[in-house]
């Protein structure tokens, strides 16, 4: 076997491998969604956890099909290490890479959203976005992702509702530093958005990728 860490590197590529990796993960996520819906195992009335269980399985299968052997998905692992004082969090789907350190991962938090009710959207922010901001998980990370399961209406209506809430919701500490906008990096799925937030403890900016997936699948 080749020796690990026997190498020495000089310089840096201009190509952004980190972005490429995240785009690949989101592409796997989006590509897995039609199988979740068509499986009929879960519907818009299923719980978030039930939907995420099925999505996780489909993502894993899609990863295997693409031979992404070095990327791994974990379902609900604990986010923090024993010596860290930050509150314990369970990540819905934790993405890790073979060459990453234990503290390096990409967290995906999943919530339901609705075009007709503001309650799920508030939970999306309070119990989703805020957890990245308070560093319940992804402490000091530069990127994270939220998945919105669109249970009624279309993705764009949900996006407008979330956008409005981001700009007007004063009750929570979102520490927003870059307003909700369409993600310019991810081209193969139209309903991917972005918002940037300052994390409370590390003071680092985390860029959240928001992926909206509809049970109606009209635009897939």
């Amino acid at each position: 076997m080749p020796e690990k860490n026997a190498g020495e590197s000089v310089g840096r590529l201009r190509v952004d491998i980190s972005d490429a990796l995240l785009c690949t993960v989101v592409d796997v996520l989006v590509a897995s969604w039609p199988a979740v819906v068509s499986s009929k195992v879960v519907t818009a009335t299923s719980t978030e956890d039930e939907i995420t269980d099925v999505l996780y399985e489909e993502m894993y299968d899609e990863k295997e099909r693409r031979e992404l052997d070095n990327i791994d998905f974990d379902r609900e692992p604990q986010s923090n290490l024993r010596h860290e004082p930050l509150p314990l969090g369970y990540i819905d789907v934790k993405v890790s890479y073979n060459a990453w350190r234990k503290t390096d991962y990409f967290a995906i938090e999943c919530k339901k959203v609705s075009a007709s009710s503001i309650t799920p959207a508030k939970k999306y922010i309070d119990d989703g976005v805020v957890r990245f901001v308070t560093e319940k998980y992804s402490s000091g990370h530069s990127r994270g992702a939220m998945v919105g399961y669109v249970v009624d209406g279309c993705e764009e209506d949900c996006a407008r509702l979330l956008e409005g809430l981001f700009s007007s919701h004063k009750l929570v500490e979102t520490n927003i530093r870059r307003a909700w906008s369409r993600h310019d990096l991810f081209r193969s799925h139209p309903h991917v958005f972005r918002s940037d937030h300052e994390q409370q403890h590390s003071k680092r900016i985390i860029s959240l990728m928001h992926v909206l997936l509809s049970f109606s699948m009209r635009s897939l």
């Binding site: 491998i17 490429a20 990796l21 785009c23 690949t24 989101v26 592409d27 693409r66 031979e67 992404l68 990096l185 991810f186 081209r187 193969s188």
Partner: peptide, 8 residues
């Protein structure tokens, strides 16, 4: 290469 299959 598989990391560059999406969006690139």
């Amino acid at each position: 290469q598989p990391l560059f299959a999406a969006g690139s």
